Simulated assay, not measured.
Amino acid sequence: MHKPERTPLIDPSDARANVGGYDDYPELYVRWFEYGAFQPNFRSHGSRPQNEVWSYGRQAEPILEKYLKLRYELMPYIYSLAHGTHENGAPFMRGLFMDFGDDPKVVDVGDEYMFGPSLLVAPVVEQGVTSREVYLPAGTDWYNFWTNERMHGGQTVMVAAPIDVIPLFVKAASILPLGEAVESTNERQRLAKVKVYPGADGEFELYRDDGTTYEYEQGKSELTRFHWSDRTKNLTRTGTKAEVVSEDGLVEVVGAGH
């Protein structure tokens, strides 16, 4: 009989038919799902009979739904990262040393990674824990994605990680385009918000094509270039005019007015 090392963070009792005697399997699946939302390919595989978001009990379902929706919200960012990889061959899920080569402390960090130029992801990989240490690379400030708290780089911080939270930080000077809620990538997704994390001048190139055909190989694609001036606190756009839900409230500057 499998016995978890610690008390499971997700009650398995209403998912017994799916998880059998593995009481910590719903917790494992939730943590894996959170981690999967920040990978180039997000696939809901598993060794249980069912792997839908409702298959692991009432406590797990809203957390899985949260990260499924977040993945779609981040799609304009992720798709643009994929375009960058297509153009230059560099991975957008990468070790910290690729972005912070001047910081010798990142060399031995094997349980954190950058997801594109903006997001630092620190998955929870221990059963039953609700916090973990995260090293924030030097040379920039960082924002806690969930709380918007700003911290200096070059330090290790203890971060709260309850079962519904994967530690996630945004590099200062990041421009994060976020899409409207959609049911699948078959839908045309407009920009709902552009979040700016101040601290230095920033750039982001938003890429778009039809998402279905190979017509992008004939140049049928769109590029919108965002530039953030930290001195003037102004975000400008050049190139193709991005399709947005509304211009009102489109730009959100994190920390503005605080």
Score class of each variant (00 low, 15 high):
Y143H: 10
Y143K: 09
V159R: 01
V124K: 02
P123K: 01
L168Y: 06
V157K: 15
S131H: 13
E112K: 10
G139P: 07
V157I: 15
V107Y: 14
M151A: 12
V109P: 01
L168M: 09
P162I: 02
S118D: 14
G139K: 10
P167H: 03
I166C: 11
G139V: 09
D108K: 14
V106R: 05
V129Y: 08
W142I: 04
G110T: 12
R150G: 07
K171C: 10
Y143W: 13
G128Y: 02
M151Y: 09
S118V: 09
V159C: 08
N144K: 07
H152P: 12
A172L: 07
M151P: 04
T130R: 13
G128V: 08
P162G: 05
F169M: 01
L168S: 02
G154A: 04
G128Q: 08
L176C: 08
A173C: 11
Y113D: 05
G154V: 00
V134D: 00
V165K: 13
V125M: 15
Y135E: 10
R132H: 06
W142F: 06
A173G: 11
Y135G: 05
P137A: 02
I166T: 15
V106L: 11
P137V: 01
P167K: 03
S131E: 15
L168P: 00
T147Y: 04
V121R: 01
Y143T: 10
F145I: 05
V170K: 07
V170W: 09
V170I: 15
P137K: 01
K171E: 12
T156G: 02
W146Y: 15
I163F: 06
V106K: 10
F169H: 02
F115K: 07
V106H: 11
N144P: 09
H152A: 14
F145L: 08
V159Y: 00
L136A: 12
N144F: 08
Q127W: 10
G153Y: 10
P162M: 05
A161H: 00
P137N: 00
I175V: 03
V159F: 00
H152F: 11
S131P: 06
F115I: 04
D141T: 12
L119H: 07
L136S: 08
V109Q: 09
F115S: 06
M158G: 12
T140E: 06
G128I: 08
Y135C: 07
T156S: 13
A173R: 13
P117D: 15
G116H: 08
P123E: 02
P167F: 01
L168K: 04
L178G: 11
N148Q: 14
S174N: 09
V107I: 15
V124C: 02
E126C: 12
E112M: 14
M114A: 08
R150D: 12
D108V: 12
V159N: 07
V121T: 02
A138R: 10
Y143A: 09
E126R: 15
A160C: 03
W146N: 13
K171V: 13
Q155N: 13
T140M: 06
L136D: 07
G128W: 05
G116E: 02
P117L: 06
V124M: 10
P167I: 04
Q155K: 15
A173L: 03
R132V: 01
V106T: 11
D164N: 15
T156R: 12
A138T: 00
V134E: 03
V121L: 05
P177Y: 02
V157W: 11
M151D: 04
V134Q: 01
L119G: 05
M151Q: 13
D108N: 14
L178I: 12
